[in-house]
Design a protein around this nucleic acid. Structure first.
Ligand SMILES: [Zn+2]
Ligand SMILES: [Zn+2]
Ligand SMILES: [Zn+2]
Ligand SMILES: [Zn+2]
Lengths: 158, 158
DNA sequence: CTTGAAGCTATAGTTGCTAGAGACATTAGG
DNA sequence: CCTAATGTCTCTAGCAACTATAGCTTCAAG
């Protein structure tokens, strides 16, 4: 039985994050010691590692919640799990496409600036006028909108 | 003089967002009509368009705040502005690198799943064990950490 | 037995907005 | 001129996924 600190260390997850996961019901309520401290066994370890890995791959907590509950039913079809993974892949691909456009536009502005006064700064100029941009880099269309953010990739370990 | 609705329409920014920008001091307090409604002139229009464009390129509001105040001092060196843009480029490049790794890993898991029962699902297997991953896709090193999220790219216009 | 680290709960802050309530302003139509 | 519809006002709360703080209790080492 591990304390929360040891568990966090083992799984590469910060202690408050573990408590947060429990609070939102992503992890089951932990057993408690006589002195009211959380205690974890192998099962909790595995679940937390699963969560951590899925977060690293960019899955939302909601998706992870679903994946966890699926993984509890080994005999069912994995179609739902695969669908979640494919959706995540699509998400990543769409972000990727957008970032590639952003990168091109940012490179253009940085390269074009000769580095004089603000009045002649290409960076400021381009930001003032999108028609100076080579291509689109537009805001994302509504359908793709929700949860675009890369899960605040909260620097690794404990 | 435009009302806030017209301004939002013109700049492709939602009305509450404009009020929010004023609230956090990114836009100056607007003039008011006799009936206490905000009125905007050409200057506000340009500033808002600048903000919108910079947001589209992924700059944080903090960075935009700095860029705006720089653009108010046309005679100064543009080194600071260029530095902000280069930092943003670096940000984008780092996210890009990470997303490329994620994409590869997600593709691998999706492709490898034969689609049977959960017990044999490659998606679940891989999530349970990072050593099944081909490469790193690790959480971002501490230094690059803050504000990794793509500015919740809150679908364009008004 | 004492001390310091680790744990506990509860609350608030982060980013960049978005949504709602309830009141006032403006404008178009009859 | 009155009314209804829309627009705007302020204020507050909510989203994701944590992180940080305060003020306590418990535990392990010496
Ligand atoms: Zn410049
Ligand atoms: Zn542009
Ligand atoms: Zn599968
Ligand atoms: Zn992995």
């Amino acid at each position: 039985m591990l304390t929360i600190g040891k568990l966090g260390e083992a799984a590469g997850v910060k202690v408050p994050t573990i408590r947060y996961y429990e609070q939102i019901g992503l992890l089951p309520e932990a057993e408690r010691s006589s002195g009211n401290q959380r205690l974890y066994g192998r099962r909790a370890m595995e679940q937390l590692a699963f969560i951590r890995h899925a977060r690293d791959l960019g899955f939302t907590l909601e998706a992870i919640r679903d994946l966890l509950s699926l993984s509890d039913r080994p005999d069912q079809s994995c179609a739902a799990a695969d669908a979640i993974a494919r959706a995540q892949l699509a998400e990543v691909e769409s972000r990727l496409a957008r970032l590639i456009a952003l990168k091109a536009e940012l490179e253009r502005m940085v390269v074009q600036c000769a580095g004089g006064r603000i009045a002649d700064c290409r960076v400021i100029e381009v930001l003032s006028d999108h028609s100076l941009c080579a291509h689109d880099h537009l805001s994302v269309p509504k359908s793709v909108d929700a949860s675009l953010a890369l899960p605040a990739s909260t620097s690794s370990s404990n």
